[in-house]
């Protein structure tokens, strides 16, 4: 059970990190820029926030299967495949919330920062700092989506004991085996894990808030 919890943490942390690497730059760009088709792009991202995990699972499967374009990598039924699927699920959420957070920053602040002679990099950094509450919410939502997901994990992971069995897929399996007590225990561990991670991130978020803008 310890191994399953550890693997859950490993897969979901990786999935979240991947989704952050993808979602934060993209969300910032969508939040700050203006170009034709931006609204369409934002709409697509917002639709993606509700992307059903089984759909993500099916499409990742199609790519990772031996007969698929990435079949040569033999990633199917590995933790890496699960992290990819979870990243696909979490990335739109991170992107959408990130864009909203950056957009919520008072636009006049941008002009002010620029007029004070900041370089574009400095301005970006200051803006992101200003939007950090929303950005951290995006991190938490992304992790929450990744760790709670079961459909895609089952499809691309296969629920292999000791390799790709995570808390959600193990819970599902124990129910179908009639081991309701084990399933309940697993679900409690899963919720404790999600609570622990989220509480830690919330602590970071709120600590920054008390300190006030630097």
């Amino acid at each position: 059970m310890w191994a399953i919890t550890w693997l859950t943490l490993r897969v979901s942390a990786t999935g979240t990190l991947l989704s952050l690497l993808l979602g934060v730059p993209l969300g910032t760009f969508l939040g700050l820029s203006s170009f034709p088709g931006r609204r369409l792009a934002l709409s697509l991202v917002n639709v993606g926030m509700g992307l059903p995990p089984v759909v993500a699972g099916l499409w990742v499967s199609l790519f990772l299967w031996r007969s698929g374009p990435l079949g040569r990598l033999e990633l199917m039924y590995t933790p890496a495949a699960m992290a990819i699927a979870q990243a696909v699920i979490a990335a739109p959420i991170v992107t959408g919330l990130c864009a909203a957070a950056v957009q919520a920053v008072n636009p006049r602040l941008r002009l002010q920062i620029l007029s004070l002679g900041a370089s574009p990099t400095q301005m970006l950094w200051l803006l992101l700092r200003e939007a950090r509450l929303g950005l951290l919410a995006a991190v938490m939502a992304g992790f929450g989506a990744a760790v709670s997901e079961v459909g895609a994990s089952m499809m691309v992971g296969g629920n292999v004991l000791g390799q790709t069995r995570v808390l959600t897929t193990a819970t599902l399996m124990e129910v179908s085996r009639g081991h309701f007590d084990v399933a309940i225990a697993l679900s409690v561990i899963l919720m404790a894990l999600a609570f622990g991670i989220t509480a830690a991130l919330t602590a970071v978020q709120q600590r920054g808030e008390r300190r006030g803008p630097a």
Binding site: A13, T16, L17, L20, V24, L128, R129, R132, L135, L136, V139, F143, A200, L201, V204, Q205, R207, G208, E209, R211, A214
Partner: peptide, 13 residues
């Protein structure tokens, strides 16, 4: 803390 909570969260993940 002075480095900003955003970078902290990212580094934590």
């Amino acid at each position: 803390g002075s480095r900003g909570s955003l970078a902290a969260a990212f580094l934590a993940v």
